[in-house]
C-alpha cells in the first residue's frame, strides 16, 4: 500500500460512512455572508486602496496616462524607464519622454506597468491573471508597480471577481494574484514597513472610460 492509500484509508475509517454530495456542492458553490458596501464601487475602491498605501490617479482618457506616469515618476525622482504588458504597449509613452519596453519585467527594471483583470471595491484590491501577455513579473520585480484599471472593471467583492473569472475564462490561469498595495513587512518589532520583497509603491490609474 502506498502512503496515499494508507492516508486515505485512515481518513475513511475515521469519518465512517458518509454521503458525499461533493459534485452538487461544487455546482452550487454557494456564497458566504459578505459585507455591504456603503458607497458606490469606485469611491469605495479608491478609499480602500488609499488606506492600503496605494496611490490612485484618475484620468478621463487612456491618452492621458503617459503624462501622468511621467509626472508621478519625476516627482519621486524615479527613472522614466520600465517594462509594460502588451495591452498598454500602444499608449504614446514616447510623447511623455518615457522609455517603456513591451515585455516581461526583470530584476533590473525599476518600473513595471500592467493592466488589471478586475478590481475589488470591498478591500481596494487588484486582481491580476497570469499569461503570456500578462506576466506577473511586471507587478512583482520592479520597485514601482503601475496598474491601469478601467473603472468598469471594479466589482464589489472577491466573489464577484471569481464570477467574472468563470465567465471570461474557462479555468484559472497558472497564477491569480490579488494585490492590495505595496509589499510590506511587520516582522521587526511589529512595525509596518513598506517595500519588503515586492514593490515599494503601487500606482493605480483609474480610467473613467
Amino acid at each position: 500500500m502506498s502512503a496515499r492509500e494508507r492516508i486515505l484509508a485512515r481518513i475513511g475509517t475515521a469519518i465512517g460512512n458518509h454521503d458525499a454530495e461533493i459534485d452538487a456542492y461544487l455546482v452550487e458553490h454557494p456564497r458566504g455572508p459578505a459585507p455591504a458596501l456603503r458607497d458606490n464601487l469606485i469611491t469605495h475602491f479608491r478609499e480602500r486602496a488609499l488606506q492600503l498605501s496605494s496611490d490612485v490617479i484618475e484620468v478621463a482618457h487612456p491618452g492621458e496616462i503617459p503624462a501622468q506616469v511621467a509626472h508621478y515618476l519625476a516627482e519621486r525622482g524615479l527613472p522614466p524607464r520600465g517594462a509594460c504588458w502588451p495591452v498598454v504597449g500602444s499608449l504614446p509613452w514616447g510623447e511623455a519622454n518615457l522609455e517603456i519596453a513591451v515585455r516581461g519585467a526583470n530584476s533590473q527594471d525599476m518600473v513595471g506597468i500592467t493592466g488589471t483583470f478586475c478590481a475589488i471595491a470591498e478591500t481596494g484590491t487588484l486582481m491580476m491573471l497570469s499569461g503570456p501577455e500578462t506576466p506577473p513579473s511586471n507587478s512583482l520585480l520592479p520597485e514601482t508597480h503601475i496598474a491601469i484599471l478601467n473603472t468598469r472593471r471594479i466589482v464589489a467583492s472577491m466573489e464577484d471577481a471569481w464570477d467574472l473569472l468563470r465567465k471570461e475564462h474557462k479555468a484559472p490561469p497558472r497564477a491569480v494574484n490579488f494585490i492590495s498595495g505595496p509589499s510590506r513587512t511587520a516582522d521587526i518589532e511589529q512595525t509596518v514597513t513598506l517595500g519588503a520583497h515586492g514593490p515599494y509603491r503601487v500606482l493605480i490609474i483609474l480610467v473613467n472610460a
Binding site: R48, L52, R103, G104, T123, T125, S130, G131, P132, P135, P136, S137, A171, P172, P173, R174, A175, V176, N177, F178, I179, S180, G181, P182, S183, R184, A186, G198
Partner: peptide, 24 residues
C-alpha cells in the same frame, strides 16, 4: 492574524507555466 482587512498578496497557483509564459 494581524488586524489587516486583507494581506498584500493573495496568490492562487494552479498548474505549471505554458511554453509562451514569460515566468512561472
Amino acid at each position: 492574524a494581524t488586524g489587516q482587512s486583507i494581506t498584500n498578496y493573495v496568490s492562487m497557483l494552479t498548474g505549471t507555466k505554458d511554453a509562451a509564459d514569460h515566468d512561472g
